[in-house]
Design a protein around this nucleic acid. Structure first.
Length: 301
DNA sequence: CAGTGTCAAGGTGGA
DNA sequence: TCCACCTTGACACTG
């Protein structure tokens, strides 16, 4: 079991998601920004390694505008060595990386232009993980979407488009149940059609359920991961108390997390804490998971 | 320098 | 019909 947090570290005072406006794009600006983002990513990973946070989601903004036509820079070549170094650090410390392209990626959209842009964005994510020389346990998670009031057709389009995706993408792709459209049961059906593993989101399953209890849900989704995909990934969070439906909590609900671990024992999984205060909650979760017994510090493995 | 409106991209649900 | 929301604030303009 590894525990981690997404994209941003609030303790170390730098961001690996620095960006700039499209209107101020230039090759120099891109290079300078990517260099700074990679430097900070290295710092975050070193922080994580010290704190035994072995799971991290790299933000999609690491290379700004990478899939936009304006970007003609060969960033993979320019930063090849830096990417390789970071990948080596990840492997040597037995860490795990994931990415989560944002809501604009809809590979089963009706508009072919949106499909094309979505695939370009997935290619960027795959190229980034490839540049780090990470194996196929480093996943790219997406929601399904593209419903437009007709889930059946959306499902067919998803199956059809995903079957044509490049191997570099499909080997890393996993689908996640979302909070309003595709339930866990829908994602399991997609898995049956496509073989794509299902990443279980605990919170979305509460908001948008499909029958299974949490232990069963972890088991069903976990069974869709092949050995080469690695330990199943799970997104965990709780609702913001008093917040609107769908909002993520500000900090870890320790009692709920303990109950979640107890309910799902002895299943192994890598848990991404989608909680606003980031590494702070992840650290608290590590403490709880150590008492649970499934989580081991690296030196105890 | 502080405050704040806006930023590449889509789709949904709630007010 | 508009706004908030999503994996996440940060940039850049104004005064």
């Amino acid at each position: 079991m590894k525990i981690g947090y997404p994209c941003i570290n609030r303790s170390i005072g730098c961001s690996s998601g620095r960006t700039f406006r499209l209107s101020s794009y230039s090759g120099e600006r891109l290079e300078e920004t990517v260099r700074e983002n990679l430097r900070c990513l290295g710092e975050i990973l070193r922080f994580n390694q010290r704190e035994c946070l072995l799971f991290f989601r790299i933000g999609s903004g690491l290379v700004p505008f990478a899939s936009h036509p304006v970007c003609t820079a060969d960033w993979q070549e320019t930063f090849a060595e830096r990417f390789r170094d970071i990948g080596r650090f990840v492997r040597e410390n037995d860490m795990r990386i994931s990415m989560h392209p944002d809501q604009f990626v809809v590979i089963n959209a009706k508009d072919p232009d949106i499909v094309g842009k979505s695939i370009a964005e997935l290619s960027y994510h795959a190229a980034l993980l490839d540049a780090m020389h990470l194996d196929e346990t480093a996943k790219i998670q997406i929601h399904v979407g593209g419903v437009y009031g007709d889930p059946g057709s959306a499902m067919k389009r998803f199956t059809s488009v995903s079957s044509g995706l490049d191997e570099s993408i499909i080997r890393r792709l996993v689908v996640e149940n979302d909070d309003s459209r595709y339930t866990l049961a829908d994602c399991l059906r997609i898995h049956e059609e496509t073989g794509i593993p299902v990443l279980f989101d605990v919170f979305h399953h509460q908001v948008n359920p499909s029958g299974a209890g949490v232990a069963e849900a972890v088991e069903l989704s976990g069974a869709t991961w092949r050995p080469r995909d690695g330990i199943p990934m799970v997104d965990y969070s709780t609702p913001m108390p008093g917040g609107r439906k769908g909002r993520h909590a500000e900090s870890l609900d320790a009692a709920d997390f303990e109950r979640f671990l107890a309910a799902t024992a002895p299943a192994d999984m890598d848990i991404m804490l989608e909680i606003k205060d980031k590494e702070k909650s992840a650290l608290a979760a590590v403490g709880i998971a150590r008492r649970d017994g499934r989580f081991r510090l690296p030196r105890e493995r």
